[in-house]
């Protein structure tokens, strides 16, 4: 594994292990996000993605391994789902100011950045799923984050909604220069702007630029480019098993995976766009 230069990493984890009820959830996982980098973690349900995020944001302590954060690191966290109890009255404007108060102008600007003007007085309970997620994103932005952590933030959004959300994130990265760590359980949908994709399944199966992951021998990849190039639809084949010879733990990552600049998006024709062929659901 390549030596990590420590100067550019916003957050760096080494050999994280965690077990629950005797079953390993994470097994010697190495992970890092650099300044200005978009990293997407994909993996099936139960692959330890959320656990990894919890450890990285400091909500959970690993059994073994270390997490090192850049000094003064500000994390903007967008949770997977947030249930606001109906007993708590919570307008959008007040929610944005949790836990720190922000001026009216800052709140309005954050809402504008996610395309939700004039929603301050709305109760959170009256928002649609897509609006709710964008309010969560706006709240994270008010933290002026160095690192934006999105835990399955597009769950439940339809494809145009997801595409719009990803465009906002990409735009924010470009403007604010923050690192972005995204998690997706949907193996087909990975943001094309990802500099690196990390495939997690208890251990790191595969790790590299979208291109390298897409062309990794154990994966067949199918691309879709129907949404202004914002969405890339990968198809990961997770039928391979690791039982008869665990593939090397830790990232046997291809060169350059550690601190890579933005990777060019590989562009195919539209032929393999199965997701779109099936018709986008309006949900």
């Amino acid at each position: 594994m390549p030596a990590h230069p420590d100067t550019t990493a916003l957050i760096e984890a080494r050999t994280l292990s965690l077990a629950r009820s005797g079953r390993p959830v994470l097994d010697r996982v190495d992970f890092r996000v650099d300044r200005g980098e978009i990293v997407t973690v994909v993996g099936p349900n139960g692959s330890g993605k959320s656990t990894l995020i919890q450890i990285l944001i400091g909500a959970l302590a690993p059994d073994a391994g270390t997490v090192r954060r850049a000094p003064g690191l500000r994390i903007g966290y967008v949770p997977q789902s947030l249930h606001i109890d109906a007993t708590m009255p919570m307008p959008v404007g007040r929610f944005l100011a949790l836990p720190q108060r922000h001026g009216r102008a800052a709140r309005a600007e954050a809402l504008a950045q996610v395309g939700l003007q004039d929603l301050e007085a709305q109760p959170m309970s009256a928002l649609s799923g897509g609006q709710f997620q964008r309010v969560l994103l706006a709240r994270a932005l008010l933290m002026r984050p160095d690192l934006l952590v999105l835990d399955e933030a597009t769950r439940g959004l339809d494809q145009p909604g997801t595409a719009a959300f990803y465009r906002i994130v990409e735009d924010l990265r470009a403007r604010m220069g923050c690192g972005v760590l995204m998690v997706s359980h949907d193996l087909h949908v990975v943001m094309s702007a990802s500099d690196r994709v990390v495939c997690l399944n208890g251990h790191i199966c595969c790790h590299g630029t979208p291109e390298i992951v897409a062309s990794a021998p154990e994966y067949r990849a199918l691309f879709g480019v129907g949404t202004q190039g914002t969405l890339a639809l990968y198809r990961h084949d997770h039928d391979h098993d690791h039982d008869d010879g665990p593939c090397g733990h830790g990232p046997d990552a291809p060169a350059g995976a550690g601190a890579g600049p933005a990777a060019p998006v590989r562009s195919h024709g539209h032929g393999h766009n199965r997701q779109h062929g099936a018709g986008p659901d309006a949900g």
Binding site: G58, A59, L82, H83, L98, P99, Q100, R101
Partner: peptide, 19 residues
């Protein structure tokens, strides 16, 4: 107040804000 409210909303959200 702020910390209590954030922790009441969502524990992960609170921890990510350093609470």
């Amino acid at each position: 107040w702020s910390g209590l409210l954030t922790a009441t909303l969502n524990a992960d959200l609170a921890r990510a804000s350093g609470i």
